[in-house]
Amino acid sequence: MAEQTTPQSTPRRSGGLVSTLTVELHSHYAIRLWEGRNRSEEKRTPDHRPKILGMPEAISRAGYAGRDAAAGNPYGDELLVKLEEAIQLATGKVQEQVRIIEKIIAGIPASITMSEVTSSEPLNLDVFSRSPLGYRCVWLLVHYDQLALKAFQAFHYGLVSRSQRDQFLDKGSKAIRVVYGLLQNYRTVPVTYDDIRHKTARGLAAIKRLGEPDPAVMSGKKRSSFSPLTAVISEED
C-alpha cells in the first residue's frame, strides 16, 4: 500500500543557522593586541599613556557601524568603507612580513628540519561578531600572531637579529593599530541620508560634529562589500 501523507497547513521551515568560532592565540604580542590597554591600567601608568582599543571592543564598534548603516546612517556606511579598505591594507602588510620571514627560514640547509612553532598553552577565545568586518579584524590579528611566532622562531635560531625581529613585530602591530584607530574614533550619531541632504536639525548637528560625509558614499557610488542592503538615493534621482 502506498504511504499517504497529510498535507501541511503551513510551509515547513528549518531552524535558524548557528555556528561557533574559536580562535587560538599563541604569542604574547597578539594577546596584548587582543586585550588592549584599559583605563585602570592607564591610571597606574606614570606617563599616563592613552587607552588602546582591544579586539572585543573593536568587534563591538564594527557591529555598531553595521547597525547604523542598516538604519540609513551615512557615517556608518562611510566607516564600513574605510574599515574594509584598512583591513585589506593591513592584512597585506602583515602577510608581506610573513613572506619575508618564511623566505629567510627557507634558506636553512636542507639537512635541517624545524617544526612549526606553537605555544604550549595558547589562549583560546570564543568569538562572536554582529558584523562580517568584525571577523575580518580577527583574521588580521591571527595573521599577526603567526608573524610573531615566525619572528621569534627566526630569532631563536639565529636567522634574524633582535632588531630585525622587533622591526617585524612593530610593522605588523602598527598595521593593526591603524584599524583600531578607525574604530576607536567612531561615534554613533542618530542621522540619516535625508537628514544630511535636506540639512535638517539632526543633519546640521551631525555635520558640525563629524563633518560632511564622503560625497561618494552619499551618492551610493562607494560602499563596502559588507554594507547592509539599504536604499541609497542620490540627489540626482
Rank of each mutant, 00 (worst) to 15 (best):
W139A: 04
S120N: 08
G134L: 09
D126T: 14
Q88E: 15
S120V: 14
Q88R: 15
A175R: 05
R177H: 08
L123E: 14
L141Y: 04
G76T: 05
A175L: 08
Y186A: 04
I100V: 14
F128C: 01
P109I: 08
V117Y: 09
Y75W: 09
L140H: 05
Y157I: 14
S163P: 04
S161T: 15
T113D: 01
Q164E: 13
N73Q: 06
G76F: 01
V191Y: 07
S120I: 13
I87K: 12
L123T: 11
A110W: 03
F152I: 05
S120R: 12
E78P: 12
F155M: 03
V160D: 02
M114D: 03
P122A: 02
V138F: 00
I101H: 03
N73V: 02
S119L: 06
K103C: 05
Y186P: 04
S163T: 13
D126F: 08
P109L: 08
M114Y: 14
Q97I: 04
A86N: 10
G134K: 07
E96H: 13
V191D: 00
Q167M: 12
V98H: 06
R177L: 08
L147Q: 08
G134N: 02
Y186L: 09
I100Y: 10
T91L: 09
E102I: 07
Y180H: 14
E96P: 01
L79G: 03
L183N: 10
Q95F: 10
C137P: 01
S119T: 07
A110T: 13
Q97K: 11
L89A: 15
L80K: 08
I100T: 15
K171L: 05
I101F: 05
K174N: 04
E116Y: 07
K171V: 02
L159M: 11
H143C: 06
G107L: 02
K103G: 00
V117G: 00
A148S: 12
S119F: 05
L183E: 08
E116D: 08
A106E: 07
R136M: 03
Y135A: 00
G92C: 06
Q97T: 00
D166K: 14
S119E: 01
T192L: 11
W139D: 06
E84S: 03
L140M: 11
Y144K: 09
I87E: 06
S119C: 04
Q184L: 12
R130F: 06
A154H: 01
K171F: 02
Q146A: 05
G181Y: 13
V178P: 02
P109H: 03
K82E: 15
I87V: 15
V98N: 09
A148N: 00
T118G: 01
L141P: 05
V191E: 03
R99G: 05
S163L: 08
G181L: 11
S115W: 00
V191L: 07
R130A: 09
E78R: 15
Q97W: 00
M114R: 12
I112W: 11
I112L: 13
D170P: 00
D126H: 13
Y157D: 07
